[in-house]
């Protein structure tokens, strides 16, 4: 299952994967994922970027298991840490994004997700 606020992910993979589209911020994606983890889903990709920081991109796509099981505490630990890290960054800069940069950031998020999807 993909939790995302990136409409490019929805457009490209909407037919292939179970997608929860979040019409909101990076943080809203993290919170949606956290709530799913509390229901027993397992985190499959890391909730933070590999260097593109929450202060640099508003887009995030995270992969979690379709199945529910007992709560996975590693998953919960990781998402909580990601939420703490998210709060550490100043998001003021995201107000100044133009169309070109928004497209680039959606592309980066998509390709990072795909590096996990194409397994």
């Amino acid at each position: 299952m993909i939790i995302t606020n990136n409409d490019w992910v929805l457009k490209k993979y909407g037919d292939k994967f179970n997608i929860v589209y979040v019409d909101g911020t990076f943080k809203d994606v993290l919170i949606t994922v956290r709530d799913k983890l509390h229901l027993g889903h397992e985190l499959l990709t890391h909730p933070l970027g590999g260097s593109v920081k929450p202060s640099e991109t508003p887009y995030k796509s995270i992969l979690i298991s379709d199945e529910k099981n007992n709560i996975n505490f590693n998953s919960v630990y990781m998402i909580e840490n990601a939420i703490i890290t998210y709060h550490k960054f100043n998001k003021e800069k995201l107000k100044y994004l133009d169309e070109k940069r928004i497209e680039d950031l959606k592309l980066i998020d998509l390709t990072v997700l795909e590096s996990a999807l194409n397994k």
Binding site: L43, L44, T45, H46, G50, L63, M78, V112, L113, S115, A116, K119
Partner: peptide, 9 residues
């Protein structure tokens, strides 16, 4: 490496 997929990590 430093991959995105947790199983890879």
């Amino acid at each position: 490496n430093e991959n995105v997929y947790l199983a890879d990590k």
